[in-house]
Simulated scan of single mutants.
Amino acid sequence: MGVRQLMGQEIARFSSGFGHVVRSVLGVGQDGQPLLFTSVPNGSDVSCWDIRTGGRVWCDNEGMSGCNDRALMRLPDGGLRLACATEDGVEWWDALTGRRRPEMTWEEQTIWALTGGVLPDGHPILLGAGHNGKMYRWDAVSGDLLGTSPSHADRGSMMAVGFVSFPGHAGVVVSGDDDGRIWRWNPVNGDQMGEPIEGHGCQVDIIRGLPVPGKPLFVSSDQEGVLKRWNAVTGAPIGSAVETGSDVFSLATASVGGVPVLFAAGADETVRAWDANTGEPIDLRLRSAVVSALTQPDGTALVATSTPQGEIAVHTYSPLTRG
């Protein structure tokens, strides 16, 4: 049996209007159709794109103090919230209309990374990794600050944050700092869970929850492009570390035909993929410095990439085959 392959086809290609890589996140509109949201590092542009036409749905070029990360959260009324992490804090939008929400702006600390989460009662929250070493929690509906993790004298800057959800549990917030440590938090009250994990030998850049049914797993990536999988409840490592050989700029996850897939892209402009449950490599022929992914209701997955020239491509991938 050969290495499993992801077989896909390009369904859209269009220019972002910028001559450099743009970061993206995939979401779903109220009509069930996928949308692509992009931002640029200097914070000068945030846009929403119709994948079917390649046209902008909306664009906000009012500007902000940089865009370190972005996150989408589904609201109880069916709406969609977009948040961007800035040098000053967090900016918010109604993602479907492009309406900026200045009354929700939070400006107290540089936030390096964001992710969405859901409380046990179904209420959406935003989670942030702060330069001051704290993990932040905001109400995704109102933008109100719900709380932070406790101060810690021996904690450096938080650089990454992820949320792990699984049945019968409130979930776990996971953050990584610039000393390579991984911290776990209760999403309801912000209390620390267990001791920090000495996860990496250098700064933790990205953390993502893994969509493995019934298993509370997440993946972390450091400045040297080393990927490690962990159990969020016990803090135990899962399998062997993966050395990509390149700086990793983005991680994304999706389920393809029921198989949880982890995607990584970075400095060498090579998109790599693994079975998120077993760690088995998956053959994928895509070139890009960044990647985002979205599971579709029919069991396929959308994967969006951006070239160094700012050209966006979207592919659809079907269940895996053996090569």
Rank of each mutant, 00 (worst) to 15 (best):
D178F: 11
K215V: 08
P124V: 02
V118I: 14
L320G: 08
R287N: 11
T97H: 10
Q5P: 04
N61H: 13
G89F: 05
W58K: 02
V242S: 12
I197G: 05
T316P: 04
G147S: 10
A254E: 00
L284M: 08
W138V: 01
T321Y: 12
I111V: 15
L36I: 04
S44M: 08
R322S: 15
T278A: 15
A170K: 07
V314F: 06
A160T: 04
N186S: 05
F218G: 05
W230P: 06
Y136C: 06
C84V: 13
F263D: 00
E311C: 11
D247S: 11
V22Q: 13
R322P: 03
G8K: 05
G310I: 11
T300E: 14
P41T: 13
I312T: 03
D144T: 09
V173D: 01
W112C: 07
T270G: 06
R74Q: 08
Q30Y: 09
G43K: 06
M135K: 04
A293M: 00
G32S: 07
D178I: 14
A12W: 12
F18Y: 15
D45H: 10
E10V: 13
D178E: 14
A170C: 06
D31Y: 10
G8P: 01
H200V: 03
D191I: 03
L210M: 08
T307M: 07
V40F: 00
D247T: 13
T97D: 07
V25F: 06
A304N: 01
N277D: 15
M1I: 10
G245S: 12
L146H: 05
M158N: 05
E311Q: 11
A254Q: 00
I207L: 14
N61Y: 10
L35G: 05
Y317Q: 07
D205F: 12
G245P: 09
G171N: 06
E108L: 12
D60Y: 10
G147L: 09
G190T: 01
V261W: 00
